[in-house]
Each structure stands twice: as structure tokens, then as C-alpha cells.
Amino acid sequence: MLNCRDVAHEASDYIDQNLSWWRRLMFRLHLFVCAKCRRFVAHVHLTRDFLRRRGPLRASDQDIEQVMQRVKTSAPDQS
């Protein structure tokens, strides 16, 4: 049987479905009896979904300008 510490450390693997079927079964058994771990796993889930929904950070105009300039200088025959 897993304890709360195990569950907390393996929560990402659980929500990403990276646990073996046996470990996953043990994990679910623990969640069945432990409200605190259910809350913790829900938080990990929410954190992942929230961060994914935020999407990528775009480069600044200055970064883009720098890259385009470098490309123009280094590959002038093709640009």
C-alpha cells in the first residue's frame, strides 16, 4: 500500500499515465481512502491544465529582430 508521501511524489506520473498498471492500482486504492491525497492530486491536475492552457510565451520584438538580422547577415544569398 502506498502512503501519502509516495502519492505526492508520484502524482505527476499518475496524472500523465506513466505508472505501471500495478502501481496505478495501488495509487487509486490510496486515493479511495485518502481525501487529502485526492485534494493534492486534484491540485496537480489543475496546475498542469492551467499551465498548458496559458500557452507558449512569444519572443519579444527585439528577439525577433535580432534573429532576422542574424539570418540576413549569415545567409544573405538566400534571404
Binding site: C4, R5, K36, F50, R53
Partner: peptide
């Protein structure tokens, strides 16, 4: 025993939309 000594607190914002 490995049980929570400091359990996870309740979150009042509990959806990605609220956090966003």
C-alpha cells in the same frame, strides 16, 4: 507512516479558467 503532517490546503479557485 508517511502521512501528511501539513496537508494540502483547499483552493477557492478550482478551475483553469479562474486561474487564467
Amino acid at each position: 507512516g508517511g502521512h501528511w503532517k501539513v496537508p494540502p490546503p483547499d483552493w477557492h479557485m478550482d478551475s483553469p479558467d479562474q486561474l487564467l
